[in-house]
Simulated assay, not measured.
Amino acid sequence: MLAKTAPDVRPDRSLGTAPSQSNAPLPVTVASSRRDVLNALRLVHDSYCDAGLIEPNESGCRVLPQHTLPTTDILVALCRGEVASTLSLVRDSHFGVPLESVFPEFIEQRRLAGVPFAEVSCLADRRSDRHRSGGLLSSLMAFTAQFAVQTGVDELMITVHPRHAKFYQRRLGFEMLCDDVRNYGAVRGNPAVLLMLDLPALQAMASPAHRRLFVEQVFGLHAMQRPPYSDALAAELAWLAGEQSPEWTGRIEPTGLDEEPVILPFEPQRQLAG
């Protein structure tokens, strides 16, 4: 088990006013620093625990085996310099993608057809009020779509609770891939539906979803660069993933550590005034 050496750095959800509705994009980027990466994964852990989707763990981070690979990027939306929303863009690899444990046939179809795809996973937001957090989510999804296109992804796949599906369909242009509602074991058997966003098709049409994702906010290529993780951070992620997914033992690359790492304290997120 992980030693409890890290401070309790729970993300503060008490963000104040809603972000500006101007056309200037909110700061969104690919997390690369230890602070941003771990704060993003702590945010996912706490949000999922609050929603009853997972049991808490001692590290306070939600780390998938795919997070140990360079094919997965952690994207973060920032509010006053703090991680306010996050998601993970998981491209296909020898570890596969998380949702294929629930909808394997749809992933296999894309592999056989040679379609470049990625899963949108580990989506979390610091604010419980979905109306106030809508601006950050829209910015994060716009960045995700543009980043996916720049990295050669044609289709974005996501599993959501059935009651959230219409938001993704109406606002972001996702399509339901099947009518099945399946139980997702990794989140305590909660119901899930499978959605897909065809990026080339969306770019070819003048739709509200196209405007939201590709026109209203345009992100520079500099924000889409992610230097490799430091060796120390890569080792931490590999250790955490192995602890949380023991069935993957032997498949996650060795960390080079002979014993459990000491998870050093990292700078907590500031209290944000209203």
Score class of each variant (00 low, 15 high):
199 L>A: 03
252 I>K: 00
244 Q>E: 06
198 D>P: 08
190 N>P: 01
260 E>C: 12
201 A>E: 02
257 L>E: 07
199 L>K: 07
178 C>Q: 14
255 T>E: 04
187 V>H: 09
181 V>L: 13
214 F>W: 09
229 Y>R: 08
228 P>Q: 05
210 H>D: 02
171 R>I: 11
209 A>K: 01
182 R>C: 03
177 L>K: 11
251 R>N: 08
189 G>L: 14
192 A>W: 07
175 E>S: 14
252 I>H: 05
257 L>I: 09
241 A>M: 01
209 A>T: 05
201 A>K: 01
211 R>E: 12
238 A>Y: 02
202 L>R: 02
220 G>E: 04
262 V>M: 08
226 R>Y: 03
205 M>Y: 11
229 Y>V: 07
243 E>W: 01
186 A>I: 10
200 P>L: 06
217 Q>G: 00
226 R>I: 05
195 L>M: 09
261 P>A: 05
199 L>W: 04
203 Q>G: 13
210 H>W: 04
212 R>T: 15
246 P>V: 07
165 A>Q: 14
230 S>N: 10
180 D>M: 15
242 G>T: 00
213 L>C: 08
176 M>W: 05
227 P>I: 06
162 P>L: 14
250 G>L: 01
211 R>T: 12
208 P>G: 08
174 F>A: 04
178 C>F: 09
162 P>N: 13
197 L>Y: 04
259 E>P: 01
184 Y>M: 10
182 R>S: 08
246 P>Y: 02
206 A>E: 15
255 T>K: 01
263 I>T: 00
207 S>H: 12
245 S>N: 07
248 W>L: 00
215 V>Q: 11
259 E>N: 08
215 V>R: 14
166 K>Q: 10
248 W>F: 11
235 A>K: 03
177 L>R: 14
203 Q>H: 10
264 L>G: 06
162 P>Y: 09
196 M>Q: 09
180 D>S: 15
263 I>Y: 05
224 M>C: 12
216 E>T: 11
221 L>R: 04
203 Q>T: 12
193 V>K: 06
193 V>C: 11
166 K>I: 04
253 E>S: 10
228 P>E: 01
239 W>N: 00
170 R>P: 02
238 A>D: 01
231 D>T: 15
253 E>Q: 15
193 V>T: 03
173 G>H: 07
229 Y>S: 07
251 R>E: 05
206 A>Y: 03
182 R>F: 09
205 M>P: 03
248 W>C: 00
198 D>I: 06
239 W>F: 10
215 V>K: 11
196 M>S: 15
206 A>P: 05
214 F>I: 09
194 L>S: 07
193 V>M: 08
194 L>Q: 02
216 E>S: 10
245 S>F: 00
167 F>E: 09
168 Y>F: 15
238 A>G: 02
231 D>S: 13
211 R>L: 09
194 L>A: 09
175 E>D: 13
162 P>K: 14
189 G>H: 14
169 Q>K: 13
200 P>C: 07
237 L>Q: 02
186 A>Q: 13
247 E>D: 14
232 A>W: 07
209 A>G: 01
227 P>E: 08
180 D>A: 15
